[in-house]
Nucleic acid binder design. Structure first.
Lengths: 201, 201
DNA sequence: ATTACTAGTAGACGAGTAA
DNA sequence: TTTACTCGTCTACTAGTAA
C-alpha cells in the first residue's frame, strides 16, 4: 500500500499455488483493472497497489467487520484537543444549524468538540464513513461556499451528540463533534482528556 | 453463524452472479468440506455455518486486520472483575511459574487479574490467539493435569504484564493477566474499574 | 416451487517457448 | 534470469431436465 514491492510472477504463482504463467496473467488483469501499478524493470518487476486497489480491499475488510463486530455501534477512542476554530465557525451558519436541528433532533451548541482518534481506531473511521450517515446539504453565503457534510449520530458518556464530517473526507485523524450542550462544561472534560465516542452505524 | 438461514440455490446464484446450478454445486462442495450444514426441507433449504466455517472466515478477517491495523499491538478494553480463584491457583504451580520466569522475563505475582473484555473488542481476542504467543508446557502434579497455556506479552498503563490463555480456548470474554507486581495495589484498581491492555502481537 | 443430475461448452490453466 | 505469448488440455460453468 505504501511502496513498491518486488514480486516476480513466479513468486506470486508459488504464493497463490498456481503456475508462473497464470500468475503473470493475473498481474496483467489487475493492471487492466487499475488495481495495481507496476514498474517493470529489467530484472524483477515492482508492484504497488493503486488507491482503487486499496479501497477494494478496505471495502472487503469493512464487510468482514460488519459480520464480526456484534453490535451496530462502533466505539472510537481519542483525546480532546483544541480545534482550529474553523469547525465552530462553519457549524454556526444558520443553514447548517437548521438542517442539524431537522435531521438530528437537536440544535447544536455553537462550536465543536475536537477529538484526535487513536491510531488503532483510525480504520474504524472508514467503516463509519461507509455506513449511512445523514447528508447535510451545502450552500453559498456571502460568496463563500459551504460544502456538503455528513453527520453520524453518536453518544459520549450517554449524551446524544453527532460526528460531523465533510462529505469528501481528507482522511483526518481529528473528528468534530456537535452536541446540544457545551460538552467540555457538561462533562468536565478538557484538552488531553481521553474520551470514548459510541457511533451508531 | 447463529442460526439457520433460508437460502435457495437460485438466490445464492443471483448473489454470486452465477447460475442456480453452479450455486447448488458450490453448496454441495461447502457441505463436503464441512463448512456449512444444511436442513433440506421440502420447500427451501436452510443453511448454517459450522464452527469450521466460522473459523475459516475469522481467519480471513484476522488477515485483513493485520493488513489494515497499522501497529503491531492491539488494545483491549475491559472491566476488572473478581476471578473464580481458579486462575490464581493454577498460576501458582511451580512448573508454570518457572516457565513464566524463563519466557516472560519476570516471575509473576501469585494470582491473576481478571478482566471482562468489552463486547466490541472480543473479535480482537481471535487476532491475538492467531498471533504468536509463547507456549507454556503442561504437566501433571499429584494426579492432576495442568494443560498447556499460551502467554502474550502486554502492558497495562506501561507496566509489563502478560495475558495467559489456555491453549484450547473456550471462547471466554474474561482474560487473566499475570504481572510481576500486584496490579490491583500497584495501579490502585479494583472491581468495576475500566482498564486498557496493550497486547504485543 | 425446489435441488441436482447429465451433457455440452467456454474459459482458465499450464507446458513450451520467444524475447 | 525475467515477462508473457500461443496452444492444447481440462476444469468449471450453464442449459436442459428429472425428481
Amino acid at each position: 500500500m505504501d511502496d513498491y514491492v518486488a514480486l516476480s510472477s513466479r513468486e506470486l504463482g508459488d504464493a497463490l499455488e498456481m503456475s508462473q504463467q497464470s500468475a503473470s496473467k493475473r498481474i496483467l488483469e489487475l493492471l487492466d483493472e487499475k488495481l495495481i501499478i507496476r514498474d517493470l524493470g529489467a530484472r524483477k518487476q515492482r508492484i504497488k497497489l493503486t488507491q482503487n486497489g486499496v479501497d477494494e480491499l478496505k471495502q472487503e475488510y469493512g464487510e468482514y467487520r460488519r459480520i464480526f463486530e456484534v453490535n451496530d455501534q462502533i466505539t472510537l477512542h481519542g483525546v480532546v484537543v483544541d480545534g482550529l476554530g474553523e469547525g465552530g465557525y462553519y457549524i454556526c451558519q444558520a443553514e447548517y444549524m437548521n438542517q442539524f436541528e431537522a435531521k438530528l433532533g437537536f440544535r447544536p451548541f455553537e462550536g465543536t468538540l475536537n477529538v484526535i482518534i487513536d491510531k488503532e481506531d483510525l480504520s474504524k473511521l472508514d467503516i463509519i464513513r461507509s455506513s449511512s450517515g445523514k447528508i447535510i446539504d451545502g450552500f453559498s453565503n456571502n460568496g463563500r461556499t459551504f460544502g456538503r457534510v455528513v453527520v453520524y449520530k453518536a453518544k459520549i458518556r450517554n449524551i446524544d451528540c453527532a460526528i460531523v464530517m465533510p462529505e469528501r473526507s481528507h482522511y483526518d485523524n481529528i473528528i468534530e463533534i456537535v452536541c446540544q450542550y457545551h460538552l467540555r462544561r457538561t462533562l468536565s472534560i478538557g484538552n488531553g482528556d481521553r474520551v470514548e465516542i459510541k457511533v451508531k452505524i
